[in-house]
C-alpha cells in the first residue's frame, strides 16, 4: 500500500519534476532580473552608497519631482475613476444576459491592444484644436467646446482612462462572476434594498478585486508614456523624462534612477495589493 501524501504538497511519483520550470526561470533571470540589476548598478555607478544619492537626486530636482508627482496623482485619479465608472457595468455584464452583451464586451476590450500613442492620437482626434467634439459643439451650440483640451490635463486624464476601462471592466466582471449570487438573493428576500446590499455584501466580497484592480491600473498608468509623449506639452510624467534623459542627454545613471523609482513604486503597490487580497484568517 502506498503511503498517503499530504494534499497539495509534493506532486508525488506521477508529477512534473522541477526541470519543467527551468526554461521559464532561466529566461526570466536573463531577460528580467539581470536587466533590473543592471538598472541598480548603473544608477549607483558602481558605488553602493551612490544608489541612494542617485534616487534622492530624482526627488531633489524640481523638474523630475514634479513629473513623478504628476504621474502619481494622475495614475491614482484615473484608477479610482475607472473603478467607479466600471463597477456597475461590470456587474451588469457578469450577471445579466442581454442582446449585444458579447459585442459590448468585445468593444470594451479593444483598448487592451492599444499602446499609449494610439490613445494619444484618439484624444487629439476627439479633443484637439480641430477635434470632433469642438467641431460638433460649434455646429450644435454655435461655439466650440473642449478645443485643445487634449493637450491639457483633462485630455491626458481622459486618454489614460480610455485604456484603463477594459482592464477595470474585465477584472471586475471576473470578480462578480466568481461571487455567490445566493447571498445577495437571500438578503433581497430578507428585504434589504439595493444600496444596502451593495454596501454590505457586494463591496466587502469584492474588496480583493477592487484592491487588485487599483494596483494593476495604477501600475499601467504610472509606467505608460506613449499618451504623454503625444499629448503633453507642459505636463510631463517621469517615464517621458527618463526616456529623454536616456536618449537625448545620454545620462544613463539619471535615467536608471528614474526607472527604479517607477519600478519600486509599482512593485510596492502591487505587493500591498496582493497582501490585502489574501483571504484573512
Amino acid at each position: 500500500m502506498r503511503p498517503l501524501r499530504a494534499p497539495g504538497r509534493s506532486p508525488g511519483p506521477a508529477g512534473p519534476s522541477a526541470a519543467w520550470l527551468a526554461p521559464a526561470a532561466l529566461f526570466l533571470g536573463v531577460a528580467f532580473l539581470v536587466p533590473l540589476a543592471t538598472l541598480v548598478a548603473t544608477a549607483a555607478r558602481g558605488a553602493p552608497g551612490a544608489l541612494w544619492l542617485a534616487l534622492a537626486g530624482v526627488w531633489a530636482r524640481p523638474h523630475t519631482r514634479h513629473a513623478l508627482a504628476n504621474g502619481l496623482g494622475l495614475s491614482a485619479a484615473v484608477s479610482l475613476a475607472a473603478i467607479a465608472l466600471c463597477l456597475l457595468p461590470a456587474e451588469l455584464l457578469a450577471r445579466r444576459r442581454f442582446p449585444g452583451r458579447g459585442a459590448a464586451r468585445l468593444l470594451l476590450s479593444i483598448p487592451l491592444a492599444f499602446s499609449g500613442v494610439i490613445v494619444g492620437f484618439l484624444a487629439i482626434v476627439m479633443l484637439g484644436r480641430v477635434g470632433v467634439v469642438p467641431s460638433l459643439a460649434r455646429a450644435v451650440f454655435g461655439r466650440p467646446f473642449g478645443e485643445g483640451l487634449a493637450y491639457a490635463l483633462p485630455g491626458l486624464f481622459l486618454a489614460y482612462l480610455f485604456f484603463e476601462i477594459p482592464r477595470a471592466v474585465l477584472a471586475l466582471e471576473a470578480a462578480f462572476a466568481r461571487m455567490d449570487p445566493e447571498v445577495d438573493a437571500a438578503a433581497r428576500t430578507l428585504g434589504a434594498g439595493p444600496v444596502r446590499r451593495f454596501a454590505r455584501i457586494t463591496l466587502p466580497a469584492l474588496r480583493p478585486a477592487l484592491v487588485g484592480t487599483f494596483a494593476t491600473t495604477f501600475s499601467v498608468s504610472l509606467g505608460s508614456y506613449g499618451a504623454a509623449l503625444i499629448l503633453s506639452r507642459r505636463f510631463s510624467v517621469l517615464p517621458v523624462e527618463a526616456y529623454q534623459e536616456f536618449t537625448a542627454f545620454g545620462n544613463d545613471a539619471g535615467a536608471c534612477a528614474m526607472a527604479l523609482w517607477l519600478a519600486a513604486i509599482s512593485l510596492v503597490v502591487s505587493a500591498v495589493a496582493a497582501r490585502e487580497a489574501r483571504p484573512r484568517g
Binding site: L28, F32, P35, L39, S219, G223, A263, S266, L267
Partner: peptide
C-alpha cells in the same frame, strides 16, 4: 518563487525593463 517572478514584470514599467535590457 517562479510564480511570483512571472507576475513581477506586470508591476515594472516597460521602459525600465527596456533600459535594463539595453544596458545589460
Amino acid at each position: 518563487s517562479l510564480g511570483a517572478l512571472l507576475d513581477a514584470p506586470l508591476a515594472v514599467p516597460g521602459l525600465a525593463v527596456a533600459i535594463g535590457l539595453l544596458l545589460a
